[in-house]
């Protein structure tokens, strides 16, 4: 089926078999392997991506259901200007606060962090973040540093937005 998607800002017109999950299209067809598959039960959140800015589990969405929409994956967060090596503030916060060990859950955690910022703004407390991460599983960290990272990432996004309001 003919499907049009904007993925990380780039338009794609693709012939997609209806039974293709969005995560399969991203990983297998487009080579965007930053989005992970951690379960078969829609519970782990490793596959989280943004659809029109809203976080969803790409393992539980058909690619054809995203027709006409804008998909953002972990690969699309950092600025892509040539020569610039800069992470998105939420990614940078995960690095700074050791919000990962093996890193398998991290792309989904970063997307969940952005979802929390979208709904609740930049000033978050640990209990709120812990509650809102209930759809994301991490087998390594014990969550403490993930929560710290999201709290800091949210703040950094706030000050960055403040500093570049005209951008």
């Amino acid at each position: 089926m003919q499907t049009r998607l904007t993925i990380n800002g780039q338009e794609h017109a693709l012939e997609v078999a209806p039974a293709t999950l969005l995560v399969e299209l991203l990983r297998d067809t487009l080579g965007l392997t930053g989005t992970h598959i951690g379960c078969d039960t829609s519970q782990c959140g490793a596959c989280n991506v943004l659809i029109d800015g809203v976080a969803v589990k790409s393992c539980t969405l058909l690619a054809v259901q995203a027709d006409g929409k804008a998909v953002t994956t972990i690969e699309g967060l950092a600025p892509t200007d040539a020569g610039v090596e800069e992470l998105h503030p939420m990614q940078a916060a995960f690095r700074e606060h050791h919000g990962l060990q093996c890193g398998f859950c991290t792309p989904g955690m970063v997307m969940a962090g952005l979802e929390i910022v979208r709904r609740r703004g930049h000033d978050l407390d640990a209990a709120t973040i812990a509650h809102d991460l209930e759809g994301n599983l991490c087998r390594c960290t014990g969550y403490v540093n993930i929560i710290k990272a999201i709290e800091a990432g949210a703040k950094a996004m706030g000050s960055k937005a403040g500093a570049t309001t005209n951008a």
Binding site: N48, A55, V56, K57, T60, E115, I116, E134, G135
Partner: peptide, 9 residues
Amino acid sequence: IGDQQVRNR
């Protein structure tokens, strides 16, 4: 219900 990502869909 479920978690935020489930509730979004």
